[in-house]
Computed example of a mutant assay.
Amino acid sequence: MKSRDIALVGILLAAGAIVRYMSLVIPGPIVANLVIAFYSLAIILVVPKISEALGIGVIAGLISALISHSIFPPANLISEPIGAVVCILVFMALKDRMKLAAPGITTFVATLASGLSFVGVVIVLLLAAPGMLAKAVTLSGFVMAVVPIVVITAVVNGIIVSMLYPAASRVLER
């Protein structure tokens, strides 16, 4: 990546972190993860190699793990790199066929990949905990409560990136 691209990624990751951190003051268990929206926007604008997208995801995972109040913040270290790699793969598949819709759809799918992998990591950890298998009802309740949040967040992130992408791409063209 060029230094300009690295700066852009850094700025967008910082913006996502600030917005996410500010959202932590809102009471309640549900906090949107706009870090995903902003790193998706960065990946869509820069179109890095897969290994570079993975690196962006690792940094996003570190940021999210540090400022998260989720059930298991370290799961972000797995879910965000997955979301970033899915983001670049989906965008590469869609960018020539669906120019206008590609950023929103890409972000939607990347958010789903990140969120559902986060839920998967938490499920594995809960099932590995002693006596947790007997509490499967609680686990299914967790899944039924969190998966709709992931889907809603994916829709919101897709809309946000769809709105930001045209202006951001024009700025980069200058």
Rank of each mutant, 00 (worst) to 15 (best):
I59H: 06
A60N: 02
A60W: 03
G61M: 10
G61P: 05
G61S: 11
G61W: 05
L62T: 05
L62R: 01
L62A: 14
L62W: 05
I63G: 01
I63E: 02
I63V: 14
I63M: 01
S64H: 13
S64P: 01
S64D: 14
S64R: 04
A65T: 15
A65V: 00
A65R: 01
L66K: 02
L66A: 15
L66M: 11
L66R: 01
I67R: 04
S68R: 02
S68T: 01
S68M: 02
H69D: 12
H69S: 15
H69E: 14
H69M: 11
I71L: 10
P73V: 00
P73E: 09
P73N: 07
P74Y: 01
P74I: 02
A75V: 13
A75T: 12
A75W: 03
N76P: 00
N76G: 11
L77H: 07
L77G: 09
L77D: 09
L77S: 03
I78Y: 02
I78K: 00
I78E: 00
I78T: 14
S79A: 15
S79G: 15
S79L: 13
E80K: 13
E80T: 10
P81Y: 12
P81H: 06
P81N: 05
P81A: 12
P81M: 07
P81I: 15
I82T: 15
I82E: 13
I82P: 03
G83M: 05
G83T: 14
G83H: 13
G83N: 07
A84Q: 08
A84T: 12
V85F: 07
V85E: 07
V85W: 06
V86G: 12
V86E: 10
V86P: 13
C87H: 13
C87Y: 08
I88N: 11
I88G: 06
I88C: 05
L89C: 07
L89W: 08
L89E: 04
L89N: 07
L89S: 08
V90Y: 09
V90F: 12
V90K: 04
F91Q: 07
F91S: 08
F91E: 04
M92H: 09
M92L: 10
M92Y: 08
A93D: 04
A93P: 04
L94R: 08
